[in-house]
Design a protein around this nucleic acid. Structure first.
Length: 137
DNA sequence: GCCAACGTTGGC
DNA sequence: GCCAACGTTGGC
C-alpha cells in the first residue's frame, strides 16, 4: 500500500470539515505532478492531511475512498479528483518545524518541494511521522 | 502582507 | 521547442 500527503488551507477545507463530512471529493488540483500522484492512488491507500498556511502541521490521516476520475470542475478535461474519507486524527499534530528538525525527514517532498499539494510519502517517513504524532499503528 | 520558488502559458 | 512573462502557492 502506498502512502501520500495532501495539503489544504484550513480556511478553504479543514480536517474538521472532512471529519464532519465523512467523505469528500478532492478536486481542484491543477498541477501535473500532483495529478500524476492522484492517478497513482489506489483505494485504501492512506494519506496524511496537512494544514498549510495556518497550523502548518499534519493533523489527520485519511484514505482513498474512490480512485481518480475526471474533475467536473475542469473545463479542459485534463485533471482528475479522488474521493477521500477520514480515518483518524493525529493525536499530536506533526508540525512542519518538527519535520524540518528531523534529519530523517529532510528528503520529504513536503520539505523539498513545498508547493506540491499532493505528494508521495515513503514507508519509512510514514512510520516515523506516525510515531512522532502518537498515532497507534 | 511580502517575497521566493516554481509551474504553466503563450508568443515566436 | 524554447524561453520570457505571468500567476499561484505557501512559509515567514
Amino acid at each position: 500500500m502506498a502512502h501520500w500527503l495532501i495539503k489544504s488551507e484550513p480556511s478553504s477545507y479543514s480536517w474538521d470539515r472532512l471529519v464532519a463530512d465523512g467523505c469528500t471529493n478532492w478536486s481542484g488540483v491543477r498541477n501535473f505532478t500532483a495529478r500524476a500522484n492522484l492517478k497513482a492512488m489506489k483505494k485504501g491507500d492512506r494519506i496524511f492531511f496537512y494544514h498549510s498556511n495556518e497550523g502548518l502541521a499534519i493533523v489527520g490521516i485519511c484514505e482513498v475512498a474512490k480512485e481518480a476520475y475526471p474533475d467536473p470542475g475542469d473545463e479542459t478535461g485534463r485533471f482528475v479528483q479522488v474521493d477521500i474519507a477520514p480515518v483518524a486524527p493525529v493525536p499530536k499534530p506533526v508540525t512542519l518545524v518538527a519535520i524540518k528538525a528531523e534529519p530523517k525527514l529532510a528528503d520529504m517532498k513536503l520539505v523539498r518541494q513545498g508547493r506540491l499539494s499532493v505528494s508521495p510519502v515513503t514507508e519509512e517517513e510514514w512510520r516515523l511521522i506516525c510515531r512522532m504524532g502518537g498515532v497507534k499503528a
